[in-house]
Design a protein around this nucleic acid. Structure first.
Length: 830
RNA sequence: GCCCAGGUGGCGGAAUUGGUAGACGCGCACGACUCAAAAUCGUGUAUCGCAAGAUGUGAGGGUUCGAUUCCCUCCCUGGGCACCA
């Protein structure tokens, strides 16, 4: 039958048309208002596209297509997050070079994405593993280095003794190597860091990573996730502390200063350099250092557990006359102290669970300064039977001038009191650490740094970029970065040329020699922190992106991707944006104005899709059997966009049946006969709702509204052409192939892409008659059909006559009448 | 432990200034068409009950004429963080 919809023929026809015509090319010089819609660029894995990718891509595609119809110049690009561990691990296993496997994977991904009819501007495709891209990743490193935002420092890395390799955090599973299960050790190496912490708080002209969150349209949970990750904490530094009989003075951070009088001992991190200094030559030296070693080893094992492995040792030293109270506090080494938070030294009290447990274990004296209001419980606390933790209703006992007040309200007054006495100053601390970007790995962007014969580092000149990733590299791990052994990478004449340039610029002393390059590569998150700017100006050979285009297209109006990037990628990209704003490259300090996450798609058995579980759905097969439009509409219809939801193959078939029905409806003969009133009303209702639901990311209900319209059009003998057109237009973002074909069938020559989005007419939305639910004492007892214009009094008196209602009303007297226009008439009877 | 998100038919889900719970789809059942099947079209489908009616949105309480929706207590599921003083 000619009526049948041949999805393979139609879809390949239009996909070719769009690519040939460059339909979705974004014009840098358009007069239309711009709209930049971005998907998180995918890692082109060997497994190919999985069914989760099209979920996010279809959503942004629908919005992109609607925005074009609404008259926007839409920038909607796609590229590849192409550096990373899987390609390298694959190379170790198979000896296939990552460059080769990655290029192949990219081909596959592009073909697959095109087969779903995504409206990307393919002229802007970028890949982070290509030299014309990573040249600018290196440029960013240089830029940060020049502005003192990149620095080198000794830091621990995850080390697998059995594989002789450094592991990325993602490769450490439950404290062990994910390949051989060997417990991961911590090894100290010189590593590069970016100063992310510098941008936590506001700077002149740049909102910080914290306050910037207030002005962007992001899911609240993501904002909260970032705030928690940054972990801002306000409190005091207790100052002027001195180690008795030593020339060491220090301060400790305290975020709960209310109970400072309770503090009876001090703990220091095992890694703290003072530990050795404090015990050197004393009788406790051996015991303390043995304990320190034990703790370090324990921590490095990756199996450290706070409950069972809490350990410590007395150093023999004291804090002298703590806060002028005449008390010396014993200083202990304790396993639970975090070295790089605050000063790595902490005061402890009875009013903290962990401190209490430690003191109990080692029999350290405690001092209670706050009691629960309940007398019996207070007695237990006094007897140190359990820890009385910070509680708002706790009654303060000390300092005496605060006796009787509640812990919950006394905080600021105690802080003021401590400051007046010169015991403390206000202080802020963060959990966030600077970003460690060094990776002892091959498949990443080289770090553009060289070293001289004295191991002094030099950033290489800009005209030496890119530093090419060499191919003569042995992937089998031997315990150092793969690049270290590459001859090509450390080519003598290259190094000499750089040396000459550095000497010419005065950066390198004449008597030094450049001997090697930095052989670590950059974390792939560095590549993905700036790719959104490359899409704005992808072929620029002079800059990562021209200032004009960065300000024209940016910031990104809509960004869509998985919630697993809540902290890392999204925080780093914000950091890059803020740096660019600070140094005048762009005029905005938040890269993503609006952000949405897609939910994970589970297998039919409600479990995460995985090869081993055999529940993986291959999108290619869906496209082949049912068509790209079916895949798109099905994924949108599955459920709320952000929610996790299981696949259902029979529902996919249902969507295909619906599209067939739509096609048949569009084949109905044309007529000038106007639509029946109720169908006309549904048509306009649908225009309204589909538009609104797309804007609100409620794609599932948008699809169901389109289905409702289909259901009402199905029984009609014929349709006016204008109705068909409207129907196709609101349908087009969801099922663009079918829409283009039907549009052409109606005699249109051009793509539907730039046709105007239909407007609804409010006069058709309102039905002439309304149905009131009539309630008696809150229960529905009948219905009243009446004109929408029936006045309140008349409607109520009509309602009283409704059969069942009259019966219930007769059982008492009416106390109250409720009238909600168009919806409810209610009576309260008693 | 802390922080998020969620809990509605056989299944996915719908319903927001509190106003007829279960839209739409899947599945299932029956019917039409057919020699037959597929496809298509139509009807029905929360639970108990012959019916009238009653019950029902994780559990229990509260506010209200009326609660999936607001408040309190608790349970369960998924995700994130986890020694940050």
């Amino acid at each position: 039958m000619s009526e049948n919809y041949d999805h393979q023929k139609v879809e390949s026809k239009w996909q070719k048309f769009w690519v040939d015509q460059k339909t979705f090319k974004a014009d840098d010089h358009s007069k239309k208002p711009k709209h930049y819609i971005l998907d998180m660029y995918p890692y082109p894995s060997g497994a190919g596209l999985h069914v989760g990718h099209p979920l996010g891509y279809t959503a942004t595609d629908i919005i992109s297509r609607k925005k074009r119809m609404e008259g926007y110049e839409v920038l909607h690009p796609m590229g590849w997050d192409a550096f990373g561990l899987p390609a390298e691990n694959y190379a170790i296993k198979t000896q296939v070079h990552p460059d080769k496997s990655t290029r192949g994977n990219i081909e596959t991904f592009r073909k697959q994405i095109q087969s779903i009819g995504m409206s990307y501007d393919w002229d802007r495709e970028v890949g982070s593993c290509f030299p014309d891209y990573y040249k600018w990743t290196q440029w960013f490193f240089r830029f940060l280095y020049k502005n003192d935002l990149a620095y080198k420092k000794k830091a621990p890395v995850n080390w697998c003794e059995s594989c002789h390799t450094v592991l990325a955090n993602e490769q450490v599973v439950d404290g062990a190597c994910d390949r051989c299960d060997t417990p991961v050790a911590l090894k100290m190496l010189n590593q590069w860091f970016f100063r992310v912490k510098d941008f936590i708080e506001d700077q002149p002209g740049v909102d910080g990573l914290l306050s910037g969150l207030d002005k962007i349209d992001w899911p609240n949970s993501t904002k909260i996730g970032q705030r928690n990750w940054i972990g801002r904490s306000e409190g005091v530094d207790i100052i002027n502390l001195k180690v008795k009989d030593m020339d060491l003075s220090f301060e400790v951070y305290d975020s709960v200063p209310q109970t400072f009088m309770a503090q009876t001992f001090t703990v220091i991190a095992p890694e703290h350099p003072w530990v050795e200094e404090m015990v050197k030559g004393t009788e406790r030296e051996k015991e303390v250092m043995d304990c320190v070693e034990r703790i370090k080893k324990n921590k490095a094992s990756g199996k450290f557990d706070i409950e069972t492995d809490m350990e410590g040792v007395f150093t023999g030293r004291y804090v002298e006359n703590y806060c002028g109270m005449g008390r010396d506090l014993p200083i202990w080494v304790a396993s639970f102290v975090v070295m790089d938070y605050g000063t790595g030294i902490v005061n402890c009290s009875v009013h903290d669970d962990r401190d209490f447990a430690f003191a109990k274990k080692y029999d350290i004296p405690l001092h209670v300064v706050m009691l629960p209001p309940d007398a019996e419980e207070a007695e237990q606390v006094k007897n140190l039977e359990h820890c009385y933790h910070h509680a708002p209703e706790g009654i303060m006992q000390e300092p005496v001038q605060f006796k009787g007040r509640q812990w919950g309200e006394v905080r600021q007054d105690i802080i003021d009191y401590m400051i007046e006495n010169d015991w403390a100053t206000p202080a802020v601390n963060y959990k966030l650490r600077d970003w460690l970007i060094s990776r002892q790995r091959y498949w990443g962007s080289p770090i553009p740094v060289v070293y001289d014969d004295q191991e002094q580092e030099y950033i290489i000149p800009e005209d030496e970029l890119p530093v090419h990733l060499p191919t003569d590299v042995d992937f089998v791990p031997h315990g150092e970065s793969p690049l270290a052994k590459s001859k090509k990478y450390h080519d003598k004449s290259d190094l000499k040329r750089i040396e000459d340039k550095l000497k010419a610029s005065g950066d390198l002393a004449q008597d030094r020699t450049i001997v090697r390059r930095e052989s670590d590569t950059m974390d792939t998150f560095v590549c993905s922190s700036w790719y959104m700017w490359r899409f704005m100006d992808p072929h620029n050979e002079k800059e990562f992106c021209s200032k004009a285009l960065a300000n024209h297209w940016g910031p990104i109006d809509l960004y869509v991707g998985g919630a697993e990037h809540t902290v890392l990628h999204l925080l780093y990209a914000r950091f890059f944006c803020k740096v660019l704003k600070k140094y005048g490259y762009i005029n905005y300090d938040e890269p993503f104005t609006k952000l949405r996450h897609q939910g994970m798609i589970l297998g039919e058995n409600q479990q995460k899709m995985s090869k081993s579980k055999g529940n993986v759905i291959n999108p290619d097969l869906i496209v082949e059997e049912y068509g790209a439009d079916t895949l798109r509409c099905y994924e949108m219809f599955m459920g709320p966009f952000h929610q996790m939801k299981p696949w259902s193959q029979s529902s996919v078939g249902g969507i295909r049946k619906w599209l067939d029905r739509v096609w048949r409806v569009l084949q109905k003969p044309e007529s000038e006969e106007p639509l029946p009133k109720n169908v006309l009303s549904t048509l306009h209702q649908t225009i309204k709702m589909v538009g609104e639901h797309i804007d609100e990311f409620k794609f599932n209900t948008a699809v169901s509204q389109l289905m409702i319209l289909t259901n009402e059009l199905t029984p009609l003998e014929s349709l006016p052409k204008a109705v068909k057109e409207t129907y196709i237009l609101i349908f087009a973002p969801f099922a663009p192939h079918l829409a283009e074909e039907a549009w052409q069938q109606l005699g249109h020559k051009d793509t539907i892409t730039f046709e105007a989005w239909p407007k609804y007419d409010a006069q058709y939305l309102v039905q002439d008659t309304v149905t009131y639910a009539v309630q008696v004492n809150g229960k529905v007892r009948g219905e009243l059909h009446t004109s929408k214009d029936t006045p309140k009094e008349e409607a109520i008196s009509e309602a009283k006559k409704v059969e069942k209602v009259a019966q219930y009303l007769s059982e008492g007297t009416i106390k109250k009448e409720i009238f909600v226009p168009g919806k409810i008439i209610g009576f309260v009877v008693s």
